[in-house]
């Protein structure tokens, strides 16, 4: 059985519920015209995102992609930060400069910011793993990629590079049935994306992406391999995006029968039943968590709405990091004696 204590198991339940509630609130605000741009949510992926990220330890790095709210919350990013980010307020992690779930904190929560291009988070994640290996740290990097993202060059280049250098990288493929609106049947001919691991000479695993504990367990096993210098792993979490690609997407291309089928396997419901069977959860506790989650969402909304808009006068500042120390004084440069460069016959 899994090495999780009661509080940890209930913590996963809380985070999955919080993920869904924050997403539902976000979609509602989008449809009310309160959020600009595009909103990507991941109803149905809560077990994959929360389960995998729950296997991380302090100092391990998370490299999420665009719809991995559950992983961000599991890493300690707060609903307040998320809502302020969606509203592009000054109290958002990006202070209004970037939107969506592109949130960075490498100081205390070890989150690399997602980038708006599929697959592009992976080489950066591998670089974080390279830094850990170079410094001899026993940390790992957990990176997420979608089924569509596995078709990019960055996915292949990165997995091969990480394998060749034995980097402590775990790549979770969220196979949720669709890349934007294109079904997986139009994207690749293999049955399991995890089979691609064979091409890099690394372990590949298929896991039920709607089973939070199964995802947690396989991620932890891969983390142990990575932590002990035995290189990267590829994990395919088979799950289903129970909504359209974005909040603007009606999802009319998704067969109702498939949606119904996956609703029967709703990861939050499955997990609740499991905790109930373990005697850890009952109706009273479910109600209590529901109240706590609703309060957290209301608090986050109030916080974000009260946060000021970014000051347009700051638009162009902090493009570059400042020079830490002036490299040398101007006097030294100007008075340095120079001999003419020998360039006789340079064009011969």
């Amino acid at each position: 059985m899994i090495d999780l204590a009661r509080d940890d198991l209930l913590g996963i339940y809380y985070l999955m519920g919080l993920t869904r509630a924050v997403e539902d609130a976000t979609r509602e605000m989008y449809h009310q015209g309160q959020i600009q741009g595009t909103v990507y949510t991941a109803r149905g992926l809560e077990a994959t995102t929360v389960g995998a990220a729950s296997a991380l330890q302090p100092g391990d790095v998370l490299a999420p992609q665009h719809r991995d709210l559950g992983a961000l919350l599991a890493r300690g990013i707060t609903p307040r930060e998320i809502m302020a980010q969606w509203l592009r307020r000054v109290d958002a992690p990006s202070q209004g400069r970037d939107g969506q779930l592109h949130i960075a904190d490498m100081a205390t929560r070890w989150v690399l910011p997602s980038t708006g291009l599929p697959g592009l988070a992976l080489p950066v994640a591998a670089g974080a793993a390279l830094a850990m290996k170079t410094r001899g740290e026993r940390h790992v990097v957990l990176a997420f990629v979608g089924d569509g993202g596995t078709n990019t060059g960055d996915f292949h280049e990165t997995m091969n590079l990480a394998a060749t250098l034995d980097l402590p990288l775990i790549c979770i493929i969220e196979n949720n049935g669709y890349a934007a609106r294109t079904p997986t049947s139009s994207q690749f001919r293999i049955k399991h994306l995890a089979d691609r691991a064979a091409a890099y000479g690394i372990p590949g695993h298929v896991v039920d992406g709607n089973d939070a504990l199964a995802v947690y367990e396989i991620t932890q096993q891969a983390a142990e391999i990575a932590r002990t210098g035995r290189g990267p792993s590829l994990i395919e979490a088979k799950t289903y995006r129970m909504q359209g690609h974005s909040a603007a997407d009606s999802a009319n291309y998704m067969p109702p029968s498939a949606l119904d089928e996956w609703r029967q396997r709703d990861p939050i419901e499955l997990y609740a039943r499991r905790l109930e069977n373990l005697g850890l959860l009952d109706d009273a506790l479910i109600l209590e968590y529901g109240t706590r989650i609703a309060q957290a969402v209301q608090d986050a909304l109030a916080f974000a709405r009260n946060s000021p808009a970014p000051d347009p006068a700051t638009l162009t500042d902090r493009l570059f990091a400042p020079d830490p120390v002036p490299p040398t004084t101007e006097d030294e440069i100007i008075t340095a004696p120079r001999r003419a460069v020998e360039r006789e016959g340079i064009w011969n």
Binding site: M106, A131, T134, N160
Partner: peptide
């Protein structure tokens, strides 16, 4: 070899990995 690292032939993953390593303090 930990500081002078031979990489497989790539451009995007090589530079992307360098970006990640740079963010992490190298």
């Amino acid at each position: 070899a930990e500081r002078v690292i031979d990489m497989p032939v790539t451009q995007s993953a090589l530079v992307g990995a360098a970006v990640g390593a740079a963010i992490c303090g190298l």
